[in-house]
């Protein structure tokens, strides 16, 4: 069953959203990690996490994380609930600042070599460059058009022609244009769950971030909608670096180039996705990916 779904998703990855391939178009299974393979030039690290300790009040959520996330790759974080993967993700754009009592006790996170937890960092600027898509789709109760342009207007970009262009580009980028182009002035809340999530992605890419963080973007979606979002992620990987937290190991296997497995706040293993799923180095990883716990 698992492999079947796997196969369904597979061929979507390289193709564009416009020309939807029929699901049953067969493809070779090992292609899963194929896109990651040719690139893999070392030392183009985008995010460099060094020995990170993170606390919620008194309880430690992350223990000494060392991780280098590469440029224009899809990196997946997997692990059982409460393992700290979402926490780490939310460190990258400092969304954790919104939660009371959280703090980075030790270590650094550098993006392009800039330590984002330095006091002179403008969180607002950071978040413009590190976009985020949330677990629960959260379109604003405004029109689709206003949803997309929200971030741009914040930056004072109000020129109608420019906004129109970006809206179209973003919606096309999020593979949503054809579905909503006739009702841009309708509420974003009127869309279906999967469309809402893609709207949120479109909203995120409208401000042209470098990194898009996705926090279990498909956990609230049905399989068809999930397939569309995954397809979109494959699409986006050519232009953005993507970090995705997922509960769904097949999803990680399908969409990501690199996978990090977390357990109890520790990074257990970080490797090419294919290696994690076919040849894990750590027995805990193997136990998890083979479904023995989690």
């Amino acid at each position: 069953m698992v492999t079947a779904v796997h196969a369904v998703m597979e061929p979507l990855s390289p193709s564009s959203a416009a020309e939807k391939p029929t699901p049953r178009l067969a493809a070779a299974q090992p292609a899963a990690a194929a896109p990651a393979k040719p690139g893999a030039p070392a030392a183009t690290h985008l995010i460099d996490i060094d020995n990170l300790d993170f606390f919620y009040g008194a309880s430690q959520a992350l223990h000494g994380i060392n991780l280098k996330i590469e440029h224009q790759k899809v990196t997946a974080f997997i692990g059982p609930s409460g393992c700290g993967k979402s926490t780490l993700l939310r460190c990258f754009n400092r969304m954790n600042d919104l939660i009371e009592g959280t703090r980075v006790a030790r270590g650094t996170i550098k993006i392009h070599g800039v330590d984002i937890y330095q006091p002179d960092v403008d969180v607002i600027e950071l978040r413009k460059r590190v976009g985020m898509v949330f677990q629960k789709s959260n379109p604003f109760p405004k029109s689709i058009y206003e949803n997309i342009t929200y971030g741009l207007r914040l930056q004072g970009r109000n020129k109608k022609s420019e906004l129109d262009e970006i809206v179209e580009r973003s919606l096309r980028g999020a593979a949503l244009w054809d579905e909503v182009k006739d009702r841009l002035d309708q509420s974003g809340l009127g869309l279906s769950g999967g469309q809402q999530q893609r709207l949120c992605i479109a909203r995120a890419i409208a401000v042209e971030p470098e990194v898009i963080l996705m926090d279990e973007p498909c956990s609230a979606l049905d399989p068809v909608a999930t397939a569309k979002v995954e397809e979109l992620i494959q699409e986006l990987r050519t232009r953005y670096s993507i970090v995705i937290v997922t509960h769904n190991m097949q999803q990680a296997a399908r969409v990501s180039d690199r996978t990090a497995f977390f357990y109890l706040g520790k990074l257990i293993e970080y490797a090419d996705t294919r290696d994690i799923f076919t040849n894990p180095a750590n027995p805990q990883t193997e136990a998890y990916v083979s479904g023995r716990f989690g």
Binding site: L98, R127, G131, N138, F140, Y150, L154, C200, V207
Partner: peptide, 27 residues
């Protein structure tokens, strides 16, 4: 007003005040 409105806005690089003014107070 749901938390998502605030998070979504902040994640797009809005300041706190922009978020409140544009995405919380109206609702």
């Amino acid at each position: 007003v749901p938390k998502g409105f605030r998070e979504g806005s902040l994640a797009l690089g809005a300041t706190k005040w922009q978020t409140i003014r544009k995405n919380v107070l109206p609702y």
